[in-house]
């Protein structure tokens, strides 16, 4: 008889039982949602707060196949599904949010390079480390009005918010990684007649790169957070903009699919970064 006590550290439940148990909370949540939805629809068949399965499907269909309200695009009657998806609301929002996201991701590369120099070159450390430590303590969202004034309310203020929000933490994190590289490695590289840039980029950077990618994976969520904050306050498209707009219409049939879609996208980015990390760095054991 298997030990079923949940408070036994040494319990060894079988695999099937574990798998089933891990699904339990998901099933409970879905069941609770359905129960609420059904009971609310019994009182008011037009209820929009907890949409039923039919309403959700209709919402997803309109998000995926129909253009956004503010667009003038009218699909031809014989337009293919791809044509419709390509001009749909969710496509438009994903592309514009994704573009901001990837531009900020790209702008984090110089931050990582700077961090490498701060950790390795004493003069860079003396020059930048204290400032970054100070800057890290500034709440990025409190800078948002300043960013709006400086960059205007279009794309660059949101991108700047993401970068300013995440970069200081990334820099401090990467600096720590650089300092954790054993001194022996650096000394050894110099005895192998490496110059300063060989040591920085071909010894230290190569070694910390998998850790940097892992740190980036952890920072995906804060990046998305800053992006959404920017989009909800001032944007004319984007995933967070749509969620904020739909709140006015009580459009839960759109909001819920959007929330899950964003979660799925983040998971996909995280997963691909993990796979890339494993492929590129077979020597890395974490």
């Amino acid at each position: 008889m298997a030990n079923l006590s949940p408070f036994d550290i040494q319990a060894r439940p079988n695999r099937l039982l574990m798998q089933a148990f891990s699904c339990l909370i998901f099933i409970v949540c879905i069941g609770f949602y359905m129960q609420t939805s059904i009971s609310r629809h019994r009182e008011n068949p037009e209820d929009r707060i907890v949409p039923s399965g039919h309403q959700l499907l209709a919402g997803i269909r309109s998000a995926v196949l129909e253009p956004a309200e503010e667009d003038d695009y009218i699909p031809a009657d014989n337009a293919s599904t791809w044509e419709r998806v390509h001009h749909s609301m969710i496509w438009k929002d994903t592309v514009s949010s994704g573009r901001r996201f990837f531009i900020s991701l790209f702008l984090l590369i110089p931050a990582v390079i700077l961090a490498l120099h701060i950790g390795l070159f004493p003069w860079f450390g003396a020059g930048f480390l204290r400032f970054v430590l100070f800057f890290d303590k500034i709440v990025a969202l409190s800078l948002l009005p300043i960013l709006f004034i400086v960059f205007g309310i279009d794309e660059w203020s949101k991108i700047a918010l993401v970068v300013i929000g995440v970069a200081p933490t990334m820099i401090l994190d990467v600096t720590q990684m650089v300092k954790a590289v054993p001194q022996e490695q650096i000394v050894k590289a110099f005895t192998l007649d490496a110059n300063n840039f060989d040591v920085a980029y071909r010894v230290v950077f190569r070694q910390i790169l998998p850790q940097v990618i892992n740190s980036l994976r952890l920072n995906l969520k804060p990046m998305m957070l800053f992006l959404f904050a920017g989009e909800m306050i001032a944007a004319s498209d984007g995933l967070a903009y749509r969620i904020a707009i739909m709140r006015r219409h009580m459009g839960m049939d759109i909001i819920l699919p959007y929330v899950l879609w964003v979660a799925f996208l983040l998971f996909l980015i995280d997963f691909s970064l993990r796979v890339i990390n494993r492929r590129l760095h077979p020597w890395f054991q974490a």
């Binding site: 022996e184 050894k188 590289a189 192998l192 490496a194 060989d198 071909r202 070694q207 020597w283």
Partner: peptide, 25 residues
């Protein structure tokens, strides 16, 4: 400890010295 570069194979570790001393980054 840490006498080898963990991100390089044995051969790359051995070749590292002559390679970098002749051809920098």
């Amino acid at each position: 400890k840490y006498s080898l570069f963990p991100d390089r194979t044995v051969l790359e570790n051995l070749a590292m010295g002559p390679e970098t001393s002749k051809y920098h980054i």
